[in-house]
Amino acid sequence: MASPFQPHSEAASHVTKVTATGLDDPAKKEIAMKIVSSAENSSLDWKAQYKYIEDIDDGRGYTAGIIGFCSGTGDMLDLVELYKTRKPGNVLEKYLPALRNVDGSDSHSGLDPNYTRDWKTAANDSVFKAAQDSERDRVYFNPSVRQGKSDGVGVLGQFMYYDAIVMHGGGNDSTSFGGIRKRALTKAKPPSQGGNETTWLNAFLDARVWAMKQEEAHSDTSRVDTAQRVFLRNGNLNLNTPLDWKVYGDSFHIS
Rank of each mutant, 00 (worst) to 15 (best):
M33I: 05
S192P: 08
S150Q: 14
Y50I: 03
P26N: 02
L205C: 13
R138E: 12
G235N: 13
N124D: 09
A39G: 15
T221Q: 14
A217H: 07
T19M: 04
N240G: 06
D133Q: 10
D163M: 07
A123M: 04
P88G: 03
D24L: 00
R208L: 01
F252G: 02
D163G: 09
R146K: 11
A48M: 14
S37M: 09
D163Q: 03
S251W: 03
D206M: 07
G65V: 02
D78C: 06
E54F: 02
S3A: 13
M160T: 01
I35C: 07
Y52Q: 09
S38C: 13
R208T: 00
F231G: 00
K29F: 01
T186K: 15
F141S: 06
R223G: 07
S174I: 12
D55C: 03
K182Q: 15
N41F: 13
K28T: 06
A11K: 05
A32F: 03
V36G: 03
D25V: 04
R223T: 13
K120W: 02
L243T: 02
G65L: 05
Y50C: 13
E30G: 00
R229F: 12
L96Y: 10
H108E: 10
V224P: 11
F141E: 00
A184T: 09
P97L: 09
G22L: 03
G59A: 12
G194N: 12
H14S: 14
K84M: 10
L99A: 06
G178F: 07
T85G: 15
P190D: 06
T73D: 05
D118W: 02
I254F: 10
E135F: 05
K213D: 15
P7A: 06
R183Y: 14
R233L: 08
S42F: 15
R117G: 00
H168A: 10
I165F: 04
E54I: 05
T19C: 02
D151P: 01
V166G: 05
D133K: 13
L201T: 12
D25S: 07
A98G: 05
K34H: 08
M167D: 05
A48K: 12
T186W: 06
S176L: 02
V166H: 02
V224E: 14
L23D: 02
A130R: 13
T186N: 15
W245E: 10
R86Y: 06
M160R: 05
T199D: 15
Q132T: 06
R60Y: 07
E54S: 15
L201S: 11
L201V: 12
A217K: 11
Q147V: 15
R60P: 04
T121V: 06
G68V: 04
V127H: 07
G104H: 09
T85V: 10
R208D: 00
S144G: 07
G169S: 06
